[in-house]
């Protein structure tokens, strides 16, 4: 087990390095080869040549690409200074980059938005896992009945309906027409009540999409597991049906659900772009959209890095949970 954890952790470190390398490559190395000037993108088209030269110096764009990469990586851990003739800005660790557009380091901006995204993803996740798994299990147990067909039809529409449609529809109905919920995003620490009120619609909207996928996945997996020999053995022992389903069948059904959940959660930490935009939530996704519109490259880079890392870490958690669930992973 210990060796397994060490191996997984080592793999995570390698993966993170790869993530940094690829991100860096996209934003710095590729422009260098294609001949476009990153500095130009950092300041915008209307900037005067002196400013562009300043940026170029600060970013060290003239230096060899490996040195640039080294500075970038060390910046993540120790912070760095962007220096040009007559000007210098400090970016404290962890330095994910410095937005010349807003004249501020990226990291504080990211950390202020992270709780919003985490609230959205976490709450929605609780909703969709309970809803999706329950619906899937009941559908599997009542295969072929009206319940099953209805649930699977709703699930199909949930998977197919675009989120901006469901989001705007729910906003129109529940916020503007009925006025049941609404309000701005409030942090949990300030006021749990309005935190909940502000997030309930986005949660439900996001969860509806994911719950649909999870219901279908759970149903399929559950049906497969119910056909296993060991389920018949459990029944032959005289176990009551709720124990057979809830303990023996669920334990095996959880494995594929966990896999998908890890990936989904990881990706969502990077921001549920459409949901955040539709509900005006000041999360990472919204920041990414804004940054793309403003061509604020360091911000885009920062969000990308966070998202990729989140996926890597979520996968680590899933791998460790696998080991807890499946002894064959733990003991081999």
């Amino acid at each position: 087990m210990f060796a397994y954890i060490v191996r997984r952790l080592f793999a995570v470190i390698v993966m993170l390095l790869v993530v940094i390398l690829v991100t860096f490559g996209i934003f710095f190395a590729i422009p260098k080869f294609t001949g476009s000037d990153p500095a130009l993108m950092y300041v915008g088209k209307q900037a005067d040549p002196a400013a562009i030269e300043g940026i170029r110096q600060k970013l060290g764009l003239g230096k060899p690409i490996l040195e640039q990469f080294w500075n970038f990586v060390t910046g993540l851990f120790t912070g760095r200074d962007y220096v040009s003739t007559g000007d210098s800005v400090h970016c404290p660790a962890p330095c994910f980059g410095y937005s010349f557009r807003h004249e501020s380091p990226i990291w504080p901006e990211l950390t202020s938005r992270l709780p919003v995204t985490l609230s959205l993803a976490g709450g929605a996740c609780v909703l969709w896992v309970t809803g999706g798994v329950l619906t899937g299990v009941v559908s599997a147990l009542k295969r072929g009945t009206v319940w099953d067909r209805t649930a699977m039809t709703v699930a199909l529409s949930g998977v197919s309906l675009p989120i901006y449609f469901t989001a705007l529809l729910s906003l129109a109905v529940f916020k503007y027409k009925l006025g049941w919920v609404g309000g701005e995003y409030t942090s949990f620490a300030d006021d749990p009540g309005s935190w909940f009120g502000g997030l309930i619609l986005p949660w439900v909207t996001l969860a509806f999409l994911y719950a649909a996928m999870y219901a279908r996945l759970t149903r399929a997996t559950m049906l497969e597991v119910l056909g296993e020999d060991y389920i018949r053995t459990a029944r032959a022992k005289g176990l009551a049906e709720p124990v057979v389903i809830g303990k023996h069948a669920m334990r095996s059904t959880m494995t594929p659900i966990l896999t998908v959940l890890g990936m989904d959660l990881g990706a969502l930490v990077g921001g549920a772009i459409l949901t955040e935009t539709a509900f005006s939530l000041p999360g990472l996704g919204q920041a990414a959209v804004a940054a793309i519109n403003e061509r604020d490259l360091p911000m885009i880079l920062g969000v990308t890095l966070i998202t990729a890392s989140a996926v890597v870490f979520a996968n680590l958690v899933v791998d460790l949970l696998y080991a807890v669930i499946d002894p064959r992973v733990r003991l081999s």
Binding site: E228, D229, Y230, R232, T233, A236, G238, L239, S252, D326
Partner: peptide, 24 residues
Amino acid sequence: RRLRGREMAMIFQDPLSAMHPYFT
């Protein structure tokens, strides 16, 4: 159901698939 496993019990063909892989 209460008779199953107590008064009547069963042995299956393939013991690998007939036992739950996740429990001791």
